[in-house]
Design a binder for these strands. Structure first.
Lengths: 350, 350
DNA sequence: AGGCTGATTGACAGCGCTGACATTTCGACT
DNA sequence: AGTCGAAATGTCAGCGCTGTCAATCAGCCT
């Protein structure tokens, strides 16, 4: 023996387990990797030995020998409060497949993006990556990963790539439904706060709004549609512009909760009584949605579920292994309306 | 050659680089690892070859041969909006040391906690871990990591372990200062909303409050001190109890912004005019702090800086390498007051 | 019993790198 | 020029596992 194992660290090797079970290391390996072709009695013996020795296979060795890494990367640009929920879901699913999640913030605007990404991906030999928007829409990202041959799941991409699995939610339908709720309560003049240009969510949510308005024979007053960027500060300006229109709208649909919260603030500063004089609805069911008064009616994003789905697709979609390409997997998840106090009947004309 | 390298994936090996530079693989290894004893001319030649071939050393191989992993773990229980900021800071610092961050949610309450942790840590051969509260206070976590010989940085632990590096902020001083601001504006009856029992933050923030009150010769009315749990929902109840006291306090200090936002809601429901009739201050400078009206006066947590510091301590504190133990490293970071609209002079007695 | 097939199991090299140690090189000094 | 020690570089085995392929075994048929 050349180097003594540090005491306490690490654990038994596969050889020790093999000896104890009276089989060869290769057989232990087969058991660990759940390969078929091991008699169940043998498998049991091995499993017992593993348990008794509290054996943990060495990931680095497995990776080196098997040309794998057991690692998948989660790339994001702006962290938001949604990230931690998403990643928790993803990690949970990863555990089921014995994978591990590396998180990597990346600057979408950086000119080094391609190189940074390539370095990371190749150094770690990632088995797949999850791309959060807006990274999921950058051609350079797509190109770099394709060149490296790394499967990538795109979360809520603007346009689906034919060759890339994706996970998204049916924002359009949800907004259509929620807008319909607004109309059903008598609102006719409804303001709309757009999100940041270039996000799929921005486009889809607006389309859902248009769907509902048109379905009810209503026209959209362009003045009442203002562009924000999903952030509170911009949302304030945006809400003020909308509330400055005459006749004043009786409701505002904000493309996310942060902006909806901004609308609440703006209305409050203009001394409007909420929700009697103005209904406000948002999207995301972010923490702030239940922290303003009145609480926001909104659309819940099943963030953990999305995270799980992303990790699941990655673990399934391994084009260079067995019988791929099968159809590129996608998940299209439903959303749930959350009706709260900020939604009220339209005020009576007086 | 036994197995063909998958085309496009991976990159040149150290041997290819060595050949190109006209040196042995070992010398390339020396350059990669920044070891001394390489003539600078040789080093240059190797570096050039590395650049030309766009070589990325294989982490798994480095790990296996060198008994390292280049991985550090970030363990957390409840993800919160603060997590993503923290982790972004940590990842940034990790990159500087060529380390990578694995995030691992863990259930503090689970009876399997010790086993789960041990499995993770040994399978990945983590070089260190960062523990977010409340994990940083669980004896089983501490014991498991100590047994495995893994250095752990504790973030804001209740009590400092003599042998564990830690990062925390001076919550007590910050609350003392902010309370003093309140008193300077004429407030005398000030309510206080405690955080979840067992958190260091809960204790320290309250102590800061007591410090300031006593320093100004004021007693604390026990009725005005209520226990929340850092969450909005509890905060609402808590605020109602405080606002139900007579004479009604003219200000409330909440142990975090979520609860401060709850106080804003509760006050609004009681038709109090903010901030004229009631000043409210919080802690954290969470997103919600600037999303309620009036915006919250609060204390900014330098989350990224804390994350960086944690990663830095881990990369420095490697007791089983070179000359340890040196003094166990700690960081005690200052906080910054953020004065916003929710803080106003006390109403005049009438 | 012998032969044949498919299911199990094992032997062995090698994944790409680094630790220990051997060897060479180089400048300084007799 | 010759000697010596430190600095620079190289040699080689092996980290712990898995892929390949060979060997063995059990079951079944004639």
């Amino acid at each position: 023996m050349r180097r003594a194992a540090a005491p306490g660290r690490g654990s038994a090797t596969i050889e020790v387990v093999a000896d104890r079970a009276g089989v060869s290391p290769k057989t232990v390996s087969r058991v660990i990797n759940n390969e078929r072709g091991v008699r169940s009695e043998t498998r049991e013996r091995v499993l017992t030995a593993i348990r008794q020795l509290d054996y943990q296979p060495n990931l680095a060795a497995r990776g080196l020998a098997g040309d794998r890494s057991f690692l998948i990367g989660l790339f994001y640009d702006h962290p938001g409060d949604y990230l931690s929920e998403f990643q928790t879901g993803a990690v949970q699913r990863c555990r089921e497949s014995n994978l591990h999640l590396m998180v990597e913030p990346l600057e979408a605007a950086s000119p080094e993006l391609g190189r940074d990404l390539s370095t990371l991906v190749r150094q770690l030999r990632l088995e797949g990556v999850i791309l959060l928007p807006p990274l999921s829409d950058l051609p350079v990202v797509h190109a770099t990963l394709a060149a490296a041959g790394i499967p990538a799941v795109h979360i809520a991409p603007m346009r689906q790539q034919d060759d890339a699995p994706s996970v998204d939610t049916d924002d359009r339908a949800a907004v259509r439904q929620l807008t319909t709720e607004l109309l059903r309560r008598g609102h006719r003049r409804v303001g709309f706060m757009l999100g940041r240009a270039g996000h799929r969510a921005t486009e889809q949510r607006y389309l859902g709004f248009v769907d509902a308005m048109h379905a009810n024979g209503l026209d959209i007053d362009p003045q009442l549609v203002q562009t924000g960027n999903f952030e509170f500060a911009e949302g304030l300006e945006c809400a003020r512009r909308i509330l400055g229109c005459r006749p004043r709208p009786t409701a505002i649909f904000a493309s996310n909760d942060d902006m909806a919260a901004a609308a609440v603030s703006a209305a409050r500063q203009m001394s409007l009584v909420l929700p009697r004089q103005l209904s406000i609805v948002g999207f995301d069911d972010a923490p702030v949605a239940s922290m303003v008064w009145p609480q926001l009616t909104t659309v819940r994003q099943p963030l953990r579920v999305i995270g799980r789905a992303a990790a699941e697709l990655i673990s399934e979609y391994q084009p260079h292994r067995q019988g791929w390409p099968r159809p590129v997997p996608r998940r299209h998840l439903p959303l749930e309306l959350v009706l709260r106090g900020s939604l009220a009947p339209a005020p009576q004309d007086s």
